[in-house]
Design a binder for these strands. Structure first.
Length: 427
DNA sequence: CTACGGCATTGCACGGAGCC
DNA sequence: GGCTCCGTGCAATGCCGTAG
């Protein structure tokens, strides 16, 4: 059987590992190992590039071919820009810093920021709705005001006709409402998120992303290892690992992954751990959330048969011409000790092994066939549903592997024939 | 009353088709 | 080969309808 893609050797049966989280027994797919492997290799690529090594920086065909963000959000291109040009430049006053960060993320596009910066004095003290509106109106000639990292919704509640007018209105309203001060007084990021989410147009996910940016400023020291919003991409990634049983307990499952990370690094023989800097090995909760989303894209290519909402991933990797010169918020770096670093890997390695389901029942029972497909080598493969397992555990099996279950094949061919007759009504 | 699903809406990058 | 046109997809949110 030829393996034309990066498809891993296919297990003949569903994997028997499972974990118990929040009282739920969740089966574990190969994407679990892919997650830890992806995080280690993606961050190793970053460090190889930063060290000035020549391309290619990886032997992994998928990481070489497709574009993925960093394990650590702060190293992504736009975050680096925000840190250098939005946060570190200009007044460090609470309202001014927050204003600049919120203005940037309103459009999330470097060229828009630079347009505004070239025309206006980007301070809250001198903010003028109409002046900003005019500049954006002129910048809108090619329709390129918004970046594409997140889909930004123009809240109609702010009286404008164009999206950017509504976003300017939202920004002005948040500042006039004293949002920076409210956030500084919030006890934790979760509380801050509920404050930001109370504004129309700011959902939990966008609020969380904004708070991560604000947390790079000197004014905030929210822990990024205690709480996170599990975005849609990360939730999808979790489902590819643990099945649909993760619904509703995403945060707890992410905490489980954070707490057991050292066990997984060791189990997989990964010694070159991802690191924010040399004083801090491993990943925090927010990095995990970020990585789960990317790993889900990786899994679309590597495990196309583990189904998800989206089937393909097309963004190709293009090597950047500029050498990497990455910066971190000053307060994050470990000069003179560990205090002040927001990411605390305080969770000790947890040596509890994955709970193995008893091997007493090694045979998996086929419930029914879901689909069939001709394979290039000739012959037929069947997508098989297992008794007691959800659709994401469906496996493609060759005809020969179904020899022990002739009644399943018979049932399938009967149902298929019935279905084939139906569309004829249209003729 | 809440919770949840489905759908509309949003801006724009990307990639393929079709044209010169 | 280079250009435009157009469809698709995205780390989202709001709203409305239905189920409980």
């Amino acid at each position: 059987m030829a393996a034309p893609t990066h498809d891993a050797p296919r297990p003949r049966k569903p994997r028997k590992e499972s974990v118990e989280i929040e009282g739920r027994v969740l089966p574990v797919s190969p994407v679990l190992d892919a997650l830890f492997y992806w995080m280690a290799e993606r961050d190793a690529i970053r460090r190889r590039k930063a060290a000035g090594e020549a391309a290619p920086w990886t032997n992994d065909p998928i990481l070489a071919e497709y574009k993925f963000t960093n394990v650590f959000r702060v190293f992504d291109r736009t975050s680096q820009y925000v840190l250098r040009n939005v946060i570190n430049r200009g007044s460090q006053d609470l309202y001014e810093t927050c204003f600049r960060v919120m203005l940037f993320r309103s459009f999330n596009r470097i060229s828009t920021w630079e347009l505004l910066d070239s025309e206006l004095d980007l301070t809250w003290a001198n903010f003028n709705y109409n002046a900003y509106r005019r500049v954006l109106q002129e910048g809108d000639v090619d329709g390129a005001i918004y970046g594409h990292a997140y889909i930004l919704i123009a809240p109609n509640a702010y009286g404008g006709r164009k999206s950017y007018e509504n976003h300017l209105g939202l920004l002005q309203h948040m500042l006039e409402d004293g949002l920076p001060e409210k956030l500084v007084n919030a006890a934790c990021m979760k509380e801050a998120e509920s404050i930001v989410s109370s504004y129309k147009g700011m959902g939990p996910f966008l609020s969380f992303q904004l708070l991560l940016d604000l947390n790079m400023t000197p004014h905030f020291q929210f822990s990024e290892d205690e709480w996170a919003i599990c975005g849609p991409g990360a939730a999808e990634g979790l489902q590819k690992i643990f099945g649909c049983g993760v619904k509703g307990i995403e945060l707890e499952v992410m905490k489980y992954l954070r707490d057991t990370q050292y066990k997984h690094w060791e189990r997989l023989g990964i010694t070159d751990l991802p690191r924010l800097h040399d004083g801090r090995l491993g990943i925090a909760l927010v990095d995990l959330e970020h990585s789960l989303c990317e790993c889900e894209k990786y899994a679309r290519v590597k495990y196309p048969r583990i189904s998800g909402k989206r089937k393909t991933y097309k963004r190709l990797y293009l090597a950047t011409e500029l050498p990497l010169d990455l910066v971190l918020p000053e307060k994050w770096t470990p000069r003179g000790g560990t205090s002040g670093t927001p990411i605390s890997i305080s969770h000790l390695p947890d040596n509890e092994p994955l709970t193995e389901l008893e091997d007493s029942d090694p045979e998996y029972e086929i419930s029914h066939i879901v689909r069939e497909a001709l394979i290039p080598e000739g012959g037929m493969e069947y997508l098989v549903r297992w008794v007691g397992w959800t659709p994401e555990w469906d496996l493609w099996l060759a005809e020969s592997e179904l020899r022990d279950a002739p009644e399943v094949l018979k049932d399938w061919s009967e149902r298929r024939n019935k279905r084939k007759r139906r569309p004829k009504k249209n003729w």
